[in-house]
Amino acid sequence: MKKVLILAEHKKGSLKKASLELTGASKGMEVSAIVFGSDAKAAADDLAAKGVQNVFWVKDAKFDHYHPEAYAAAMDQVVSQVKPNIILGNASSLGKDLIAKMAARLDAPLAADCTEATIQPDIKLRRPFFSGKAVGTIEFEPAELVCITVRPNSLAPGEVSSTAGKVNELAVNFDFASSAVQFVGKTEGSSDKPDLTEAAIIVSGGRSMKTKENFKILNELADVLGAAVGASRAAVDEGLASHDMQVGQTGKTVNPKLYIANGISGAIQHLAGMRTSKVIVAINKDAAAPLFQKADYGIVGDLFVIVPLLTKEFKKLLGKA
C-alpha cells in the first residue's frame, strides 16, 4: 500500500482545517504526519486522534518559526524513516516553500496547488494554470515518490481512521548557529480575521470604495460572517487597501465558498484569483460591470447603502443582532 507523509500545520496549537483536508484525502492509508513547534502539542494529538498512525512532533522551540534548511532537515529524517510514496501538504506559505524544496532534494515530481486531488487507489490531480483561466489534468511520470500540495478548501476534511495513532517527539539534527539563514522575528498580522487563502467567506472591495476608511463597512460585514476582507488590484494600487489584501493574478488566489464583491468591475486578472469561489455575489452601481456575468447573485445598487443593510440582515439571521 502507498504510504503518505503529511506536512501538517497549526495556528497557535490548533490544527488547521486545511490539514484535515489532507487526512481526509488519505483515508484508510498508511499515514505519517510531521508538525513543527513547541506549541503544537494539541495539533499533534489531534492528528493522532484522526488516525494518523505516526505523528512526528518537532517540539524543539528552535523550530517554532520557519527555517527552510532546518525544516528540510526534519523532513529528511522522517522521509528516511517512513519512506513515503506521497508527500502531501497544503499550498500555504509553508507548504509551497518546504515541499518544493523537498521535491528538489529528493528529485521527485511535484504537482503544486492542486484544486482537485484524489490519492487513492490511484492518484488523480487537477490544478489551475494561468491563475485558474485554465485547468490541467496532471499525470505523474512513474516515480517512487511524488510531492503534492493542495489548495485549502479544495477537499472535504476527514479522518484517516477511527483507530488513534501515536505521537513521537522528533529530535532534529540541525546546526542553527552555522546556517547562512537566521530567523530574526515575525511581525503580527494587521487583523484577527482569517487569512484570505484559507477563508470560507470573503468580503472584497474595489476602486468604488473610494477611501481606505470606507473599508470599515466591509470589515463590519466580515466580522458578522467570520470572513476575510479582500480587495481588487485597482483598490490596492490606489492605496485603499494593503497588498496582502489583493485578490487576483498578482495577488492572492482564493477559494472560498462565498465571495462577496463590492464595487469590483471584474477585470480578467481579478477573476483569475477568485473564480473557483463556490458562490459569487456582485454588488455594483454599474449594471454593465463584467463581474455580473461571472456572479451567481447580483445587486445593482449603491454598495454604501447595500452593505450596511446586509450586515444588519446577517446579524439577524445569525442571531447576532
Partner: peptide
Amino acid sequence: GYKVKGWSLPPERGKVK
C-alpha cells in the same frame, strides 16, 4: 515530473440572479 494530460476551461456559471 508530470505531463498535462488534458486542458479544460473553468466551468461557466449559470446566469446571474
